[in-house]
Amino acid sequence: MKRTLPLLFLVCLGLITGCSKSDSSSSSPAAGEAITVALMPKSKGNAYFVSCREGSEAAAKDLGVELIFDGPTTPDPARQNEIIENWITLGVNVIAVACENRDGISTALRKARQKGIRVVTYDSDAAPDAREFFVNQATPEGIGYGLMDEAARLMGGEGEFAIITASLTAANMNEWQKHIEARRASKHPGLKMVALRPCDDLKDKAQAEATTLMSAHPNLKLIMAICSPAVPGAAEAVKQAGKAGKVQVIGLGLPSENKGYVKEGITQSVILWKTTDLGYLTVEAAVAVARSQLRPGATSFSSRRVGEVQVQGDQILLGKPFVFNKDNIEGFNF
């Protein structure tokens, strides 16, 4: 009997490997043929990606394609790779992924492309040679201009404001700040930036910085928080100082984290993109790539929901960021 067990095991292995003919060819389908889109978030439970998923499911329904939505339960780059490798052997037509680890996932994506699977990225990009297009939710320019214009509107075109950032060395923050300054100089010269403070991506520290800013600059009219923990942090400082309405707060962050402050009138606006639109556009772009309707060199792409969007090089731009305020924030759950 002892001999039969390893034998059984071998039989099992044989069954896995041999029980069906290998038909792992996956070529790009012609228009009209059934398409399977595999969409991966950084992590499945994240409210941000849950709302992306809503948009992507709507798009899949509108376009009549099959959508597979799967990803790690926590942001786990290794698990992302495993799922991609699974999709390769499953034979999906196109993969759309928000990358947790750029270098790690690019290897798996290149492998997918070698097997004839089309690849796009969204939200956060892979290496350029590992995908065909990146659906970019916001350019640094769009974010910088959006924040500055909103600040100018709230301040009435003049006065002092301060910025709270994550760290003075973070590349993306510095890029945004550059565009904020460019917009201020060209369009809103009446405004004056009096301070730029780092908060190390911590809410507590942002709160402390905001408190210091308010006492150091009594004429401060507005605090602009450009990393997401700093928006509620600054709002809490304003609330505790009893300066609601006198010092306004805007920033780049999730509507859900700021809903309370926005409703209380402490935070005026939260700026971000509509994540459902991001999901929708990603699936549309993926399908268009799979059907070879969207090719390199395109300069625009027409979306059913978002309208005509710009394509710059290999990046599809979602467009201007969206301003969440007292009037509309209730309807957003991410």
């Binding site: 069954l15 896995i16 490997t17 038909d23 792992s24 699974n86 499953l90």
Partner: peptide, 16 residues
């Protein structure tokens, strides 16, 4: 093997 899509392929076995 009967319900799944391309479960029994050599590629997938190698993946597992």
């Amino acid at each position: 093997a009967s319900l799944g899509r391309r479960f029994g392929t050599a590629d997938n076995a190698a993946n597992i």
